[in-house]
Design a binder for these strands. Sequence first.
DNA 1: ACAATAGTTTGCTATCTGGTGAACTATAGC
DNA 2: GCTATAGTTCACCAGATAGCAAACTATTGT
Lengths: 118, 118
Amino acid sequence: MVFHMENYSASLDSSFHALSDPTRRAVLARLVLGNAPVKELAEPFEMGLPSFMKHLKVLEESGLIETEKKGRVRTCRLNSKQLAATEAWLAEQRAIWEGRTDRLAEYVEANQSKGSLS
Amino acid sequence: MVFHMENYSASLDSSFHALSDPTRRAVLARLVLGNAPVKELAEPFEMGLPSFMKHLKVLEESGLIETEKKGRVRTCRLNSKQLAATEAWLAEQRAIWEGRTDRLAEYVEANQSKGSLS
DNA sequence: ACAATAGTTTGCTATCTGGTGAACTATAGC
DNA sequence: GCTATAGTTCACCAGATAGCAAACTATTGT
């Protein structure tokens, strides 16, 4: 499962950072439904185009989306691999958490102040 | 699945932001293994305690961890619910992506420049 | 040709981020 | 009671972020 660790951490940095903004999450949620040009993506938001383009740039540099310009139209698409890779980090932590054998002991520890035994 | 949407987006903002830093992810990965006091958590990192405490604060304000001070020791523990809630957003996007019925059409579109048909 | 469209570039803000060192507080151990 | 320990608070800094308006470029439609 450890393929190319070189910049794995940096890649997670930028992906999670990209995901930390509601505008960018909304763009991703839109692209999950299908590709779209910049103008259509920008429409729901009140900010100016230059601001919006910055968000797209953050998404593209994180690898979560890819874009291609044809004529005067730039079309954006989701990169599901990067989305999956990001989810995988969280899934792995949850798997470790769920696999712990000492959670019962911890439950007892958390409740030891309540005199259920002594 | 939509329980209390009020600050759902803001909660994701802060969780993803907390996850976007390698120090904070390392702290989470440690806490997945079990609770720990601040000093033990801080040990692997070269930064000063004040800097490290800022990271802990970001994690705590995101809800990903909880802390409790007993005597002079502050113990930290993972909040698995917040971790799961964050993962859930990504899982939902993937589910939508995987459930799309038009991805074959898109595959064709992506490969139409290669003259496999015409 | 020329006007509208789609995006880009530039320069300017205010705020947030992640780090520092130094001084301080509160507990535990002897 | 003194000292070491564990954490906290403070003031400060450089760089990144997220927004804006205005001017600009490159297509497409007529």
